[in-house]
Structure formats: structure tokens, C-alpha cells
């Protein structure tokens, strides 16, 4: 007989509550492990893009979704991670396993500095403050000798002893493992006292303070954690692309990260993953569609660039209008629907 009752508090706060959840998780893991052997390299490259975006989105969601602090410099922090690993592994010859956490920490250190204005600024003012940081980053990257400006930097390949990570499939597993660990850590942070403090600050900062929660400590911590995630994403991105230029990390990247967490669902871990998937898929989906209509309407591929931005905007506006809780909201509604099916209530 299975256990029908929870007999300890640990069980009640467990991540995977029952057999149902555990079996779905097992299926997901199997599918994710089989995928690289089924998919073509192009499709796998999309998966890799999603994986990296998931890590970045998780970080931003901890900051914006949980703690309620808006940041328009997440892209710049991803860039700091990328440039850190590029410089560390090319100039100092550090191994990937060392440069990965180091680039995370580098971004976190700068993220902490970005966090300081958040103690005084809120909402739009904070958005502008972080935006300024993004521009400063771009300026420095463009004008500093070390980073070679527009030319960009080459990033060495990752090597484990004699094994070189070079194919899409190798990267897939590397990114999958990192993203899985990042997700687990985010989920744990969210259910611990730190996550509760974040949400408390987001919901009512004055009451949070009156509950003995230090705003300074937890706001800064949220910025640090978020930047650490961004740094990890940047590090993986740099090694994956093998060449990074300042244009990779402009305002557009920050905005697409914000789009991810809004469309996925603010303040949820699953939402970050869904949103990262969706936003990464949209451009590929548009390319696919224009390809399919090539014969019927040949002029379409010429419009593709303007099309991309238009659809992007349309999807965001649509989400805000029809499902402000994003994909996570849709997921929850479907779950409730199937729980009670075929009854309405």
C-alpha cells in the first residue's frame, strides 16, 4: 500500500509530491535524453538556444517575477558572462569548468552593483537605471582594447581531457545538464525562506520589513542571483557560438528575456521554461511558415524581417490581453479542466 498521508513536513514541501509527478518527470527526462538522437542538427540547435534561454529566463524571473524588481540590463549581464569566459579561457587558459562559475560570479558581482539603485528606485525609475547600465556595458565593450570592439572575440572550444565539445549533440547535453541544475536550484530557492522573502518584498515591501525581512539584503541578493544565472547563460552562449560580438547583447536581448518571463508566467519556474521555449521558437516558426508558402507567395520571404518583429509584438500583446498569467496560466487552466473532466466544476 502506498502512503496516502504525508507524515512529515519534508514530504509536504517536497518538490515532487506524488508518483504522478515523478512519472511525468521520468518521461520528460527520457524524452530529453533521446531527442538529440532523433532530431536533425538544425532542430537540435533550436533546442540548444532554448536551453540557454531557459537559464537566463530563470534568473530574470527570480528577480522580476518573484522579487518584483524590473531589470532592463539582463542582456548586458549575459554579455558580461560571455565576455568573461571568452577572456578567461582565451587569455588565461582556464578550463570551462572553472570559467563557467567564474563568469557567473563576475556577472553576479556586477549585478550586485546594479542592485544598489534598487534600494532607492522603484518601477519605471529602476527600469531606466538598469537600462543605463546596459548602455554603459555596450559602450565599454565597444571601446575597451581588451574586448576588441565591433570585431568581437573568439571563444575557445571546451575540452574535457581529449574529448572536445564540438557537435550540436555534445552541446545539447552540456546545456541540458546546466539548465537542469539551474532549474533545480531555482525551484529550491523559490520554496526556501529566500524565495518567500523575495515574494514578500514583491507583494508588500513595507509589511515585509515589518516582518523582519531586510529589504537591502534580499533585494541585492535577488540581483546577484539573477545576474549569476545570466552569467552562466552567457558563458554557455559564448562557447556555443564560438564568436561573440557586442551586438549579441544589446537591449533587444534584455527585452526578449522580459518577453519570455511575461509570456511564460511571472513568478513561476515552469513559466520561465515555457516562455524561453516559446520566444526562441517564434522566429524559427516564422521562417518555417514562410518557407512553406514559398511557392504560393514568393514575395513573402522578402518581408520576413519585418514580419518577425510584427509577430513577436502581436504575440506579446495577445498574451497580455488574453492570458496575463502567460503560458503557466494556460497550463494551470488545462490542468484544472482535466482534473474535473467531464464535469464542469
Amino acid at each position: 500500500m502506498g502512503r496516502k498521508f504525508k507524515t512529515s513536513y519534508q514530504q509536504d514541501s517536497a518538490l515532487f509530491q506524488n508518483l504522478w509527478v515523478k512519472s511525468w518527470l521520468a518521461i520528460a527526462i527520457v524524452v530529453l535524453c533521446v531527442l538529440p538522437f532523433v532530431l536533425k542538427p538544425y532542430e537540435l540547435s533550436i533546442m540548444n538556444g532554448i536551453g540557454i534561454a531557459v537559464i537566463g529566463a530563470l534568473g530574470l524571473n527570480l528577480l522580476t517575477g518573484y522579487t518584483g524588481q524590473i531589470s532592463l540590463c539582463h542582456g548586458a549581464l549575459v554579455g558580461i558572462g560571455a565576455y568573461s569566459t571568452a577572456l578567461l579561457s582565451a587569455n588565461l587558459g582556464l578550463h570551462f569548468l572553472v570559467s563557467l562559475p567564474l563568469s557567473g560570479l563576475m556577472a553576479a558581482a556586477l549585478g550586485l552593483i546594479v542592485g544598489v539603485p534598487s534600494l532607492r528606485l522603484k518601477g519605471l525609475y529602476l527600469a531606466l537605471g538598469t537600462l543605463a547600465f546596459g548602455f554603459i556595458f555596450e559602450y565599454v565593450i565597444l571601446h575597451w582594447n581588451l574586448t576588441q570592439g565591433e570585431m568581437g572575440l573568439a571563444v575557445p572550444r571546451i575540452q574535457f581531457a581529449s574529448f572536445v565539445v564540438e557537435t550540436e549533440r555534445h552541446f545539447y547535453f552540456l546545456i541540458l545538464i546546466t539548465a537542469a541544475l539551474a532549474t533545480l536550484a531555482a525551484k529550491n530557492i523559490a520554496r526556501s525562506k529566500i524565495g518567500r522573502c523575495f515574494v514578500a518584498i514583491c507583494d508588500r515591501d513595507i509589511a515585509a520589513e515589518a516582518m523582519g525581512i531586510s529589504l537591502t539584503k534580499y533585494k541585492i541578493m535577488a540581483f546577484g542571483i539573477s545576474a549569476f544565472y545570466a552569467g552562466l547563460a552567457g558563458c554557455l552562449l559564448a562557447h556555443y557560438q564560438q564568436w561573440i560580438v557586442p551586438g549579441n547583447f544589446d537591449l533587444m536581448l534584455s527585452i526578449s528575456y522580459i518577453a519570455m518571463i511575461i509570456m511564460g508566467g511571472l513568478g513561476t519556474v515552469l513559466g520561465s521554461i515555457l516562455g524561453a521555449g516559446l520566444i526562441t521558437l517564434i522566429p524559427h516558426g516564422i521562417v518555417y511558415l514562410t518557407d512553406a508558402f514559398k511557392d504560393v507567395w514568393p514575395g513573402l520571404s522578402g518581408l520576413i524581417v519585418s514580419f518577425k518583429l510584427g509577430v513577436f509584438g502581436l504575440v506579446i500583446v495577445g498574451t497580455l490581453l488574453f492570458e496575463p498569467r502567460g503560458l503557466f496560466g494556460i497550463y494551470q487552466r488545462i490542468k484544472v479542466y482535466w482534473k474535473t473532466w467531464p464535469f464542469k466544476y
Partner: peptide
């Protein structure tokens, strides 16, 4: 109160 949280989380947040 922290509106988005459950009663339990509200009380737990006071113990952080």
C-alpha cells in the same frame, strides 16, 4: 498580507 502567497507561506515568511 502578501497577497500572492498561501496562508502557510505568509506565516512562514514571518519566520525568515
Amino acid at each position: 498580507l502578501f497577497k500572492g502567497m498561501t496562508v502557510l507561506d505568509n506565516l512562514m515568511s514571518a519566520r525568515s
